[in-house]
């Protein structure tokens, strides 16, 4: 299965959420490949704490795979990460592998040449032979990377593969509108997909939304101290829900809701239960949200046509 993670704006927590989602799936026994398609500024290496890929690798990253026709190197996070959480993954019973396909250090965006979509499809096919799940982290906004994967997934050799899209946005009026534009706008995913041979109806059915940095009114008592503040927040939250519903981004299409977690605001990293129960630096609700989002990826009833 291919999961494309995208967002209209930067700073939504798309990458850190996707990395954690990847970790949860690997923990549950699925072989996971994480592809850093943010060619301009690869970040997954830093989140997975892989020193040699912190800002992308020196050679044979995904950028060079497309522009220089080199092999795309695969870094098993259990071997290359400095994070104890990831290094310990193979020792957990029933867990599988989490492999990073990093970007290149001096990558940058590139325009799509004629052979790239076929090369992209070839890479996805090859990874599908080995991995249960491929998470493709696309850069924020409309990029060449988005066009590239839309064109690749429209190719006949990928017809048998399941592709799903997660659109990340913060829980604000502007972010909801921006995410809506990214999918339904004139230059949005659906229109761009249709031009490349996708059925827009089917494509829309493969899109779900993830709300990030959501203030949880039930939990965050410390930050909500005055009654008037609480009342206003609840009312505004309701307004945002109505807005999302109107824009076809309501509950039925909600894949996950990631609570605001101070730790992740400062340190984008993969967290596990020991960060919650042992060190108590992350919130249980955050880990639970990652877990729920990871479970949703393969919940067929949730992905059925709406």
């Amino acid at each position: 299965m291919l999961i494309f993670a995208t967002s209209d704006k930067g700073g939504t927590g798309r990458s850190v959420t996707s990395c954690n989602m990847a970790y949860r799936r690997a923990l549950q026994g699925e072989a996971v490949a994480y592809l850093d398609f943010d060619f301009g500024s690869p970040t997954a290496g830093a989140i997975f704490d892989v020193p040699k890929a912190e800002r992308g690798v020196d050679a044979s990253g995904l950028h060079s795979y497309f522009t220089k026709h080199t092999e795309a190197q695969q870094l098993d996070t259990a071997l290359h990460s400095d994070s104890d959480t990831l290094r310990d993954l193979p020792r957990i019973s029933g867990a599988s592998r989490l492999v990073l396909l990093p970007g290149d250090k001096d990558g940058g965006e590139f325009s799509i040449s004629a052979d790239m979509p076929a090369r992209c499809a070839q890479l996805f096919l090859k990874l599908d032979r080995e991995f249960d799940l491929c998470i493709v982290d696309l850069s924020a906004g409309r990029s060449y990377a988005v066009d590239l994967v839309l064109e690749a997934t429209a190719r006949p050799e990928l017809a048998a593969l399941t592709s799903r899209w997660l659109v990340f946005h913060r829980w604000t009026k502007q972010h909801i509108l921006a995410a809506h534009g990214l999918v339904f706008g004139e230059k949005g995913l659906l229109k761009a997909g249709e031009r490349r041979g996708h059925d827009p109806q089917k494509l829309n059915n493969s899109v779900r939304y993830v709300r990030t940095a959501v203030v949880d009114l039930g939990v965050d008592q410390e930050s909500v101290t005055r009654p008037a503040q609480g009342a206003w927040l609840r009312a505004y939250d309701q307004k945002l829900r109505e807005q999302a519903d109107k824009l076809r981004m309501g509950r039925a299409r909600l894949a996950g809701q990631i609570p605001y977690d101070p730790m992740l605001q400062w340190s984008e990293q993969v967290i596990d239960d020991s960060d919650v129960s042992g060190l108590k630096i992350a919130n249980q609700a955050t880990v639970q949200a990652f877990e729920d989002l990871a479970a949703k990826l393969s919940d067929e009833r949730f992905w059925e046509g709406l």
Binding site: A31, Q122, L125, D128, R129, F131, P156, E157, A159, A160
Partner: peptide, 12 residues
Amino acid sequence: QSDRLDHTTALR
């Protein structure tokens, strides 16, 4: 990549 295959992975 051949179009003679259905590209379904039987076992990962």
